[in-house]
């Protein structure tokens, strides 16, 4: 599948799915993050919580994604990256992302996007300087890829809330999990 058709697929999946108001999403997610900020002392704990919540979402979301998007098997990590950026981001967030710089060993790539509907109204106060506001997205990607047998690690590299010119999530592949039969069966 060529590049423009992935884009079209993303647009089509987005058009087909049900929409909610951007304000509702941004404010709901915002008050959720705020509650976590109140409950946990340090921003790094909040980041970890958001990531693990995202993981649980990703584990479930990937099924929905595969069912609705008609994506076939991804033959390479490069293709996976394109699908996440062009189709998955468009489908669930309504924004298109692009695949950023690859690392030397071709195992780490960036997902770069300008608009972040989750952080629509947010602005980081000083005491939250270490917070990755949209860290839930990292968890979602990790959870989703784990369900398709790819063990990855995701982290935010750049965030507009911190004054960077765009948002970037770095995804690095650790290993491709091999399906194994359950223990104790021959």
């Amino acid at each position: 599948m060529s590049r423009p058709s992935l884009q079209a697929l993303g647009d089509a999946s987005f058009a087909r799915s049900e929409h909610v108001s951007a304000e509702l999403l941004a404010l709901t997610y915002g008050s959720f993050v705020r509650q976590l900020v109140q409950d946990y002392e340090s921003p790094s704990d909040v980041n970890a919580q958001l990531e693990s919540i995202g993981y649980n979402m990703g584990v479930r979301l990937v099924d929905d994604f595969l069912a609705k998007s008609n994506i076939s098997h991804c033959s390479s990590l490069a293709k996976t990256a394109e699908v996440i950026a062009k189709v998955a981001f468009k489908m669930f967030l309504g924004v298109s992302a692009t695949v950023g710089v690859w690392s030397q060993d071709k195992k780490t790539f960036g997902i770069v996007f300008d608009d972040n509907p989750l952080a629509e109204f947010a602005e980081l106060p000083e005491e939250c300087a270490g917070l990755w506001y949209s860290n839930v997205l990292c968890g979602v990607i990790r959870g989703a890829l784990e369900m398709v047998n790819m063990k990855v690690e995701c982290r935010f590299e750049r965030c507009r809330l911190r004054g960077d010119e765009c948002n970037e999530i770095r995804v690095s592949l650790h290993e491709i999990l091999v399906e194994q039969p359950p223990k104790g069966e021959d």
Binding site: Y29, V33, R34, V37, F121, E123, L124
Partner: peptide, 19 residues
């Protein structure tokens, strides 16, 4: 309105946003 829509702003607290 924009400043108070920020989810991390607490109502009736001083607005410290530099922007």
């Amino acid at each position: 309105i924009k400043a108070t829509l920020n989810p991390l702003y607490v109502e009736s607290e001083p607005i410290r946003s530099t922007s």
